[in-house]
Design a binder for these strands. Structure first.
Lengths: 147, 147
DNA sequence: GTCCATGCAAATTCTTTGCAGGAAC
DNA sequence: GTTCCTGCAAAGAATTTGCATGGAC
């Protein structure tokens, strides 16, 4: 996989003039390890276990900063915003996303290759995501339900 | 195109036991005419021009009701939630969406056909959307910018 | 020592709910 | 007449901002 290491993330943040605090190091580590999308609340709870007296707005601010910096990417789900490590651009791909654990798996195929766009439409960007359950979260056919 | 008429929408709402108020008739008409996605605020402003003393929460409530009923569909954009007429299911397709006027154009091709999903991943749903500028909103190459 | 990051508090924005009067059926 | 719809107000939730202190450099 083409994920960044904690050190690479920290280095990238430092290169942009950000101060490397413990909290930011931990955040970098969290996302370097995270195989999927995380909600701000998720992240806050995780961080809260490590830092007592942590404030939500600081977590939020850091997520925003890391997003603006291009380290994280933000995606809107029905239930709200989520963050994950930004995939490298030179390797364009899409994702299978697990509805249970929100882990992601790359899809090499890009639908734009096979999409017939009328030439009077000027394409700017596209979004392709597949949702379901991964092998670990897979449910019995019987108890399976749509979301 | 396979959009519903105002009458069909009204009939569908009535069939579900909803009372047909002026406001709901207007809403039905608005979405029957709307070629694209609309924000709740959009809708509220439009309705507000017709009904003085209109309250935002009623608009919201009606959008929700119409969504639960299957008349509208809700989509999360980066900027927030939007609504549009629900496309008929028997004719599965995707959309080109104009970033300017938010008008939509159907894409027949469904990327799932060409996507190689590992068989230990249980697919539940997928999302494929293409954003850009339609022929009416198309911008000069010079002043064109990514969003 | 300087300037940024943090926590605290509060402001905004978005969305939802309770309630009483009025409208649809 | 009964039940649902509406507007008003207010509650919740999600997100953002101002400010003083402490920490990174």
């Amino acid at each position: 996989m083409q994920t960044m290491t904690t050190e690479e993330i920290v280095r990238k943040m430092a290169a942009q003039g950000l101060r490397i605090t413990d909290q930011r190091k931990t955040l970098a580590g969290l996302f370097a390890e995270s195989p999927g999308y995380r909600t701000p609340k998720d992240v806050y709870e995780y961080m809260g276990r490590i830092y007592s007296g942590l404030s939500f707005d600081t977590v939020y601010r850091n997520l925003r900063v890391m997003e603006e910096l291009g380290v994280l990417e933000q995606v809107m789900f029905e239930e709200g915003v989520r963050f994950k490590l930004h995939c490298r651009e030179h390797d364009h791909h899409h994702h299978l996303i697990c509805l249970q654990c929100s882990k992601t798996y790359p899809i090499k195929h890009c639908p734009m290759d096979a999409t017939d766009v009328p030439d009077n439409f000027q394409v700017v960007k596209h979004k392709f995501e597949v949702f379901g359950y991964c092998k670990d979260c897979r449910q019995d056919e019987a108890e399976q339900r749509s979301v």
